[in-house]
């Protein structure tokens, strides 16, 4: 019993994206590995670069096994994301902590009965400002989306004055920048 690993509710896949403009978006996306125990998660986390050490243009994505980290996947296309945008200063102070908290929320199934709505999470390392998002599978599932957003905000330790927004992928795909519309905020 002492030596058995602790199983997770789901098997998770960690993906890595490195921006190489000579290749297609999909060719730049690589599956690193899959894991389904607490111990194997830490073995992986301890052996990869911290997000803050990645070069600009890179992403990590952690998704449930069978869901690809792209809008087009059947489990994502009706969904959306709770988006955390970080200032350049936050890369030093908070980026790695926020990403680790995000990973723990996912693998620990910390969104109660709505954990089933979660598809995965993405971190984008960008010169203009990093982003972290939790993706859920159904943007119209208001109760689930709001619950996940509230728990997530609390886990990150964000102040009640800070507002985070949820955007449907269908809207994100057709709009950008200031035109991006928040479907929900918490």
């Amino acid at each position: 019993e002492c030596f058995s690993k602790h199983p997770l509710q789901n098997r998770w896949a960690l993906w890595f994206f490195k921006n190489d403009k000579s290749k297609t978006w999909q060719d730049n996306l690589r599956l690193i590995t899959k894991f389904d125990t607490v111990e194997d998660f830490w073995a992986l986390y301890s052996n990869i670069q911290l997000a803050s050490k990645l070069t600009s243009g890179c992403d990590y994505s952690l998704f449930k096994d069978g869901i690809e980290p792209m809008w087009e996947d059947n489990r994502n296309k009706r969904g959306g994301r709770w988006l955390i945008t970080l200032s350049k200063q936050q890369r030093h102070a908070e980026l790695d902590r926020f990403w680790l908290e995000t990973l723990l929320c996912l693998i620990g199934e910390m969104f109660d009965d709505y954990s089933e709505d979660v598809c995965g999470a993405v971190i984008n390392i960008r010169a203009k400002g990093d982003k972290i998002a939790i993706w859920t599978q159904e943007a119209e599932n208001r109760d689930g989306v709001i619950h996940i957003g509230r728990v997530y905000k609390e886990r990150l330790g964000l102040s009640s004055k800070m507002v985070i927004g949820y955007q449907a992928h269908a809207d994100t795909a057709t709009k950008s920048g200031s035109l991006m519309k928040n479907k929900f905020v918490v």
Binding site: H6, Q9, V38, E39, A43, I107, G108, M110
Partner: peptide, 20 residues
């Protein structure tokens, strides 16, 4: 039975790997 783990439980395992 669903496998749920809280933050502190999960973090406890990080130190096992950090000390190896």
């Amino acid at each position: 039975e669903k496998k749920r783990y809280d933050r502190e439980f999960l973090l406890g395992f990080q130190f096992i790997f950090a000390s190896m």
